[in-house]
Nucleic acid binder design. Sequence first.
RNA 1: GGAGGCUUCGCCUAGUCCGGUCUAUGGCGCCGCACUGCUAAUGCGGUUUGGGUUAACCCCCAUCCCGGGUUCAAAUCCCGGAGCCUCCGCCA
Length: 431
Amino acid sequence: MIDLRLVREHPDLVTASQRARGADESRVDELLAADAARRDAVRHADELRAQQKAASQAVKKAAPEERPAVLERARALAAEVKEAEEALRAADAALRAAHLRLPNVVHDGVPPGGEDDAVTLRTVGEVPGYDFEVRDHLQIGEALGAIDTERGAKVSGARFYFLTGPGALLEFALAQLAITRAVAAGFTPVVAPALVKPEAMEGTGFLGEHDEEVYRIERDDLYLVGTSEVALAGMHAGEVLDLSSPRRYAGWSSCFRREAGSYGKDTRGIIRVHWFDKVEMFSFCRPEEAAAEHLRLLAWEEEFLRALELPYRVVDIAAGDLGTSAARKYDIEAWFPSQGAYRELTSTSDCTTFQARRLNIRYKDADGRNQTAATLNGTLCAIARTIACLLEVHQRADGSVHVPAALRPWLGGAEVLTPGMALAAPVPPAA
RNA sequence: GGAGGCUUCGCCUAGUCCGGUCUAUGGCGCCGCACUGCUAAUGCGGUUUGGGUUAACCCCCAUCCCGGGUUCAAAUCCCGGAGCCUCCGCCA
């Protein structure tokens, strides 16, 4: 939810944001009207309640002969209060609905337009040349005995997979590398629940226009998270935090996505799947620090990809392609040789106070007043897709795959993965 | 899954049986002021969180885990739910 004061005092800014998103501008006026209506309802109900309270007090003080009359007046007022409260409830609900319909206000400088209007900020690393016919990650993974999508489909359906042998080791190697680096950077590592209540899902903005993407366990009224962002944001719901410096978590969890509406897209391999594991960075900070924190998250993402020796580019996502909660979003797209294209590998969003307001996450400012916090998230490593990218980029003519130095400690020191190789046990980095 | 107990303004706590004097008691902590040439101690005052209104102060409303209900009136009575604890069962 955006700040109501901003809408009241600078509706033009909010309208401009809607325009940049290509979203309905009239929603701003709807929200203003709902806000005014609610305040009227509050005033009316409060006033009646005050009268009714006084009348009720008078009952017990009334002399016996006055009592019936006083009681009658109190009764009448009670009925009026009840009516006013019903009207207030309706006005509250209308305001909330209008409030929830409005996405976050985009930052200045976000490119206008939609999916095709993203601006490439920089391109890092050399796109390798291959003097042989490149294979895609599934061909490579199958040859290595690392990825099995056929049996994944047998057991769970399309877009499921098994990681086996070196594939399974790669999963843990990447998770270890991500968590190790995050801890070194000062993040608190977290293993987060993948099943959450509706409040957490709604609070992070995933039940709006994108609720088709989400798995719901109807019987228990729980949702499977699409990212641990949901649990990490919800972790501090309703709390007042000390944010003298940003509070940073690196959360590991499985992620589940229905991929509704993506039929026919990326059907091969493990680039787009219903389930994968991910290490996610999440920050709580003061709103004035959010933009700087956003760049820090982006920098950590880039360092991770450089450690994996993957060529990539950084993209500033256009307003129309931003999620509901985001005021700005940078994607990092890594090179996939089999597609001859850069594809999204990580993503970081500045949600400003939008999520925290819904989730009621606050901090005390210098004057000791409670203020709404800002939240930001960023992918450190979406494991399945990263494995796919690694296999493709680092493939060699003979079907083997180069292992980046950063990953070797967790792959038994192996410098290369070769079909049929004996698996070495992971060795922790030298003490 | 079954049985019982608990949940009060940061923490602890009084109040709940028997509805109105609860505008919620006291302690700890915290903040301010006074006093003591330091520290400590002491005294006085303040200290839930939201909303409405306001230039501001004031004032008003809500808030005793949450949601309903009874009543002129609910921390208190009734119904439903959540969380925590204990015991039994089951389970990795």
